[in-house]
């Protein structure tokens, strides 16, 4: 399988072509630095993204608290995580970095608050 990946490590935006199957990479071409190769290989095998969104609170004055995944999540799980997050109502007070959803969608990653609500 061949996949074209635009590198996002620096603003150059190299178009990198990765050839391989699953975890097995045959070739990486089009990058001009080592960081591009590392990025493109990871993006080919296991693309991940930091998820940032909001969770509803029980406080009318501040109806939302911003949240993020503590670590990057598998890209294909992002929409499933949103489904779970949408159903949450966080109890106030909330402090910065309070864990609001533990081990979301069995990824082993927590969703934490990135703001505080009294």
């Amino acid at each position: 399988m061949k996949k074209e990946i635009i590198c996002t490590v620096c603003p150059m935006g190299c178009r990198i072509t990765v050839e391989g199957e699953g975890e097995n990479i045959i070739s990486v071409t089009g990058n001009i630095c080592k960081r591009g190769e590392v990025y493109a290989s990871a993006e080919f095998c296991h693309p991940v993204r930091i998820l940032t969104t909001t969770i509803k609170t029980d406080n009318e004055k501040t109806p939302l608290v911003p949240v993020r995944s503590e670590k990057p999540l598998p890209k294909e799980k992002v929409m499933d995580c949103m489904e779970v997050i949408r159903k949450q109502v966080a109890k106030t007070p909330i402090a910065m970095y309070d864990v609001l959803v533990e081990n979301i969608c069995d990824t082993g990653i927590n969703i934490v608050a990135t703001g505080a609500v009294k």
């Binding site: 930091i50 940032t52 969104t53 911003p66 949240v67 993020r68 910065m96 990135t114 703001g115």
Partner: peptide, 25 residues
Amino acid sequence: LQQCIHPGFGLTYFKEELTGPEYAG
């Protein structure tokens, strides 16, 4: 920054990737 809940802030100043509310905080 309070509404910029996405990451990408602080890479040069704090040398880590923060969301807007974290940076402002």
